[in-house]
């Protein structure tokens, strides 16, 4: 069973149709990349998966998005539960102006799942920060402001914040575009590690990045999902001319 099943999804901003009948399946514990030129709707699609688009005025969504076996657009969906399960990493690292520890436990604290003994907090921080490869570096600096970290570390803390919530799916919206190539490489290898426990969907401008880390890739253009398949196939034997044009750099 796929982790995420998108079924004939339409999305309108007012009268403008930003997503046109998207149907696709994203596998569990797999990295799926969404590529395409700016404005193709890939971020919009990503934000449908945790209903972040709900925040936008004048938006209308039709169709189904199944996560597990639940349609997240069905009436009565528990949005808080949904967003606990489906975490999101943004373009710019955005830790809260709090300490590193407070950032990591933020989600649990706000959802009232934080144990009252402070000793256990460190255990949570240990698990989450180890998962993002920061524990050794930061274990003695948990009380420092998260904003004092490098951008790459900040992005890792943001991922740790999701890990601590025990999400199953991580949506990444161009998570490396604010980072330099070295940091990008490190975040990419982190993603490959995370894949063992998480289903990852990443939107990226960077085709090489999609090729390096993803197993499946979807190519989008003007609100359509043009082609979807194993990454190797998309980049070497695309079935659609438009995909071919994009990956060979004719536009984008």
């Amino acid at each position: 069973m796929p982790a995420i099943a998108i079924n004939n999804l339409d999305l309108y901003y007012g009268s403008f149709q930003a997503l046109k009948g998207i149907t696709s399946f994203f596998k569990e514990k797999t990295i799926t990349a969404l590529i395409g030129p700016s404005g193709c709707g890939k971020s919009t699609l990503l934000r449908c998966l945790n209903r972040m688009n709900d925040l936008i005025d004048g938006i209308r969504i039709e169709g189904q998005v199944l996560i597990g076996d639940k349609d997240i657009y069905a009436p009565g969906t528990d949005l808080i539960q949904l967003r606990k399960e489906v975490g999101m990493v943004f373009q710019r690292p955005n830790p809260f102006p709090l300490s590193i520890l407070e950032n990591v436990i933020f989600g649990l604290k706000i959802h009232g799942q934080l144990p009252s003994e402070k000793k256990k907090w460190e255990k949570i921080a240990f698990r989450a920060l180890s998962a993002v490869g920061l524990w050794e570096t930061l274990k003695d600096r948990l009380k420092e402001s998260a904003l004092s970290l490098t951008l790459e570390q900040q992005q890792r803390v943001c991922i740790a914040r999701i890990v601590a919530l025990q999400s199953r799916i991580v949506l990444m919206d161009e998570p490396c575009s604010a980072l330099d190539p070295m940091a990008t490489e490190k975040i990419e290898s982190l993603m490959l590690n995370l894949k063992e426990n998480f289903t990852i969907v990443i939107v990226t401008h960077n085709m090489q990045q999609a090729a390096r880390i993803s197993e499946e890739t979807g190519f989008m253009l003007l609100g359509d999902l043009i082609e979807f398949g194993p990454t190797g196939q998309i980049f070497t034997k695309p079935q659609d001319d438009r995909t071919n044009d994009y990956i060979t750099g004719r536009y984008g």
Binding site: L79, R83, K84, G87, M88, N94, F96, G107, H111, R161
Partner: peptide
């Protein structure tokens, strides 16, 4: 920054808690 609100929502924090805690 608007980002803080977005992140908070993405972590499943409701509107009122986002306001009071973030």
């Amino acid at each position: 920054p608007q980002e803080y609100r977005e992140v908070a929502f993405s972590l499943g924090v409701g509107k009122w808690k986002t306001i009071t805690r973030v």
